[in-house]
Design a protein around this nucleic acid. Sequence first.
DNA 1: GCAGATATTGTAATCGATTTCATTTTGAAT
DNA 2: ATTCAAAATGAAATCGATTACAATATCTGC
Lengths: 336, 336
Amino acid sequence: MDAKIVDVAAKAGVSPATVSRVLNQASGVTSKTRNKVMKAVEELNYHPNAAAKNLRQQKTMNIGVIAQDINNAYFTEIIKGIENMAYAQKYRVFICDAENQLEKEREYMTMLMDRTMDGVILIAPQLLDEEICEMADKGYYVAVIGRNIEHPRIPCIYTDNVKFSRQVMEHLLSNGHRDIVFLNGYPEAIDSYERLEGYLKALKDNQIPFRPELVENGDFNETGGYEAMKRLFDKNIPFTAVYAANDEMALGVYQACAERGISIPNQLAVVGVDNNRISKYVTPALSTVNQPKYTMGAILVEKFIDQMNDNQFADQRVFVVDSELLIRGSSNYKMK
Amino acid sequence: MDAKIVDVAAKAGVSPATVSRVLNQASGVTSKTRNKVMKAVEELNYHPNAAAKNLRQQKTMNIGVIAQDINNAYFTEIIKGIENMAYAQKYRVFICDAENQLEKEREYMTMLMDRTMDGVILIAPQLLDEEICEMADKGYYVAVIGRNIEHPRIPCIYTDNVKFSRQVMEHLLSNGHRDIVFLNGYPEAIDSYERLEGYLKALKDNQIPFRPELVENGDFNETGGYEAMKRLFDKNIPFTAVYAANDEMALGVYQACAERGISIPNQLAVVGVDNNRISKYVTPALSTVNQPKYTMGAILVEKFIDQMNDNQFADQRVFVVDSELLIRGSSNYKMK
DNA sequence: GCAGATATTGTAATCGATTTCATTTTGAAT
DNA sequence: ATTCAAAATGAAATCGATTACAATATCTGC
């Protein structure tokens, strides 16, 4: 149906090799033949068949991004950073939605083995470190956003959870809070673990004894946060602040408080993590931690492409970026 | 690096043709050889090279989805419908973010011409109808969500803007509003045009004269809505309700009202369109129109795949789906 | 005008699968 | 045991580009 390189060659009165040279290296061809060829290309609206090209060149210039959930702006913002930087380097980015399913994540990894993609960027993968390392060992290009995978060939970028977690705590403590709830995500996630770690360290730094009954799991989603709060209220123990490991769960906290007539921030301070767009719109606006999402995507993909092109690192493999605490109405109140 | 079909064939002691048969049709092979081959496939962790396969078969089983902005949950929700239905039919879906840029949209269309994708689904494209038709004329598979492109080979699905627009107006009118502002998106968009049409028809049906000064453009984004409201306030004309052509602009309305100390819904009723997730969280909750996004994606891709497989339509080409008006706090107040 | 170097172009091999067609094997019927 | 049809397998062509290598054209300097 569409024109092939031989058609272009015939029309321009040259060999297919010449057509290829015109379209690719752009040198070693007289301008006269180049013009002839370009004219034929235009007239036939010729586009080299990607499959043939990929097969012969053993590369595709495609990068896959596997996100856990494209409905979540946290991921899509990162992806925009990836996409724009990759685009500038002539790579095409294809986004895959794993929908929080490990099986889908794994299925998308086959894109590497069947060579549909030159490389794959995993954002906050559920895959185990070992699985990811194994792929890298086999020579596939993999990069990870969200945690550090200890493997010399895997570029990684992530934020220092412990650090910002302590900042959140210092903020609450400085407002006079002592009985602070920590609403955890699902406990297997590294983010959960590290945010909890920051919570604990901050308590220790301030000589406040850790009370395990103040920690609940909320699975990183709104309903989970809501249920967790209900469990906490039922315990009938006093607390004046909630540090939720993400904004989604914090929204659940708002809901639970609304039901009980508890006023934020006067009776309860709330802080989340992620700077979900919604956090700005709720009443009161939710204090949260903002990660430089776009930049994280951009930095990582740039290094990744470097590596794919040279098959070695120019310099750094691991990037740790800082987050910023955004203090809003939900925690902007000093306890007496 | 990775195993090729000849390696598998050698290991299993058969010809490449037989390996291919085992992996593809699954018939015409004794179970003994099938087992031998499968064993070799396992041991070598063989995955057929996609480029070679695509080249030979002249198809990729890939569908591209070109979205205007993956940060917008309206698009990603549709995409989930597409993705899940396509997945069930063995198609892989790749998401491309056009970032509201016509140029990127066009660039991604080359995926069709270079045969990276078997087909492309455009969501609310900026491309002109003619451009899209031209692609279809050339034999490429294209489908469109958001409007009807009059072309026998282009499946389309969209909502009846005029219809729900009238519903919104009837709702406001029944609450006693007569001076109703219409906040339009950018005027070139078909959605803008049709929603305005519904606004006008509802006025006519109720013998209310149309006052052009009550219509402002807000470009479909929050800032646009905010600016438009400021312009309206400055006009110093009375109005008691705002019908914004999408939720984003309605958020701008909230902001403008907050600045002026205007209370929603008592002094001003607000209704949006899209059921953006945020609309539920603002105070008061925003009345809006919900489209069956997931279903729209699913229905369309199903027909699209049918068409790609049979190269003809089983039945319908155009699907018009109904939306639902969600009445929330922002418009739930009767004027006296 | 010619030799030799260099630049341009063409021929044919190649990438790794699928698939057509030919060949061999198997099995059923006699 | 033999014949013949049917089933299983293999050999080789094919998809459409790139690219190594060979061949030809052009240019330089004398």
